[in-house]
Design a protein around this nucleic acid. Structure first.
Lengths: 244, 244
DNA sequence: CGAATTCTTGACTAGGTTCAACTCCGGTGG
DNA sequence: CCACCGGAGTTGAACCTAGTCAAGAATTCG
């Protein structure tokens, strides 16, 4: 968990060791939250932002007809709600999709430090912008890919993001979510997620059982997904090997 | 067009008159671009960012199967590609969806000014974050709303965004796009856009002909859209009346 | 005025939803 | 230790929303 903080710090681009130290000193208490709990409530006005150290957190919007959309997923080493530093009210909730650990940074501290450390501010800005790039890719998935493509794409993306922080390798990673969670990310029904996973399994592209996912054929999976890692590359510069 | 620059400057939050002046001085030549032309190419590494002064610009991603997704739309008074200041390669293209005018700001200038003017940098950061909030809302639309809801939502959003910069009022606004453009924004086929618009027209909720849109019944349209303006509010503080 | 988009509509198809039942699993308490 | 419980996963059948293909009407543009 501590190494994830290190990875996160390491990823801040163009920040001097000095600035990095100052930022590291702002990171507060670690909090552990269990599956299903709300980290930040829609409509609230947070005074802190959180760095995810363990588990998976999702951005959840509830529509007025009861529909649930998960508009983003965070993996360890990422800020979950850095944007709340700039925005007033939260336009969505943040929910622990698995058991989670987070570290808090107060907005007051962040603001103060940003005043005098432009490179640090820039690096934080960049984090939110990378987030945006991922969101755009999700938009293309929801708008223009069929169910198989959406699932395939999600698994490709998750593999690369987790691999970049050392939580995946050898085409395997933990994914302690329910099929309903996935359904709400890719915008299809949970029943259809189930059926679609079955076809991926039958084609020996992807296994996902007991919370562990295995990509059996990256090449073909990426093709079905129309996966182009370009949008992630920016964040993967610290990473080692990437799948081809 | 000049007033749009003024509006844009005015919207930068928490920026002193001094900083505002410095920023205004960076704004360069105006360029006019006609419908369908590419403003920024996917894969390029821009050295400038552009402020939209007139017309509509779209973020366009082309999938490897030829599908087109428009993952965002800019209205006058917004930066179209401010995020390119932080990211390396463009992960999508920017296209003039109508005849357009843009003003350029060089990245070198922006970087220089950001070094010494944290409040200005913060305001720019905020612009990109508001952009992200809109993207999230689009995600919910694509993931969890049926075709009518998506169209209704898009028209509600556009009305409010245009109204905020004085380009809409009295429930009318110019929308010089094709039905295909809309189709690629909301992730349905253009044929279905056509049919869906027809039902909205028949229900006397929305008219859109000859490039001009009229919301005939805001209340009901917003209900169908499950439109909650919360996510835009942040940007509407400068605006006058808002629809109820 | 002619050509090219764009819009409109119909008929058919396909992908995904819904509802409902049944299974599988981990946990919990008797 | 086992019986029970609840949540998650699996499957089938009927239905429906939206996609595709194709052709004709209406606009726009040169």
């Amino acid at each position: 968990m501590q190494d994830l903080l290190a990875i996160m710090l390491d990823r801040l681009e163009g920040v001097s060791a000095d600035d990095r130290g100052v930022f590291a000193a702002l990171i507060g208490e670690t909090r552990v939250v269990s599956t299903g709990q709300v980290l930040v409530e829609e409509g609230s006005r947070p005074l802190i932002s959180m760095i995810l150290l363990k588990g998976l957190a999702g951005r959840v919007s509830i529509l007025s007809d009861g529909g649930r959309q998960i508009s983003g997923l965070n993996v360890p080493g990422e800020f979950v709600d850095l944007h709340s530093l700039l925005l007033g009210k939260m336009d969505h909730s943040l929910v622990a999709l698995s058991d989670v650990a987070v570290a808090a940074v107060s907005h007051a501290d962040l603001r103060r430090v940003c005043e005098t450390r432009p490179h640090l501010m820039r690096a934080l800005w960049r984090e939110t912008v990378v987030d945006g790039a991922i969101q755009r890719e999700w938009l293309s998935a929801l708008g223009r890919r069929p169910a198989v493509g959406r699932l395939a794409h999600l698994f490709c993306e998750l593999y690369m993001r987790l691999e970049a922080v050392g939580l995946a390798g050898d085409y395997r990673f933990d994914l302690p979510l329910t099929q309903s969670d996935i359904a709400d990310m890719v915008g299809i029904s949970s029943v259809h997620v189930n059926r679609t996973l079955k076809t991926l399994r039958r084609q020996r592209l992807l296994e996902w059982r007991g919370g562990e996912a295995t990509v059996q054929d990256w090449r073909r999976l990426a093709r079905i997904a129309q996966f182009d890692p370009n949008y992630l590359e920016t964040r993967l510069t610290t990473s080692g090997v990437k799948p081809s």
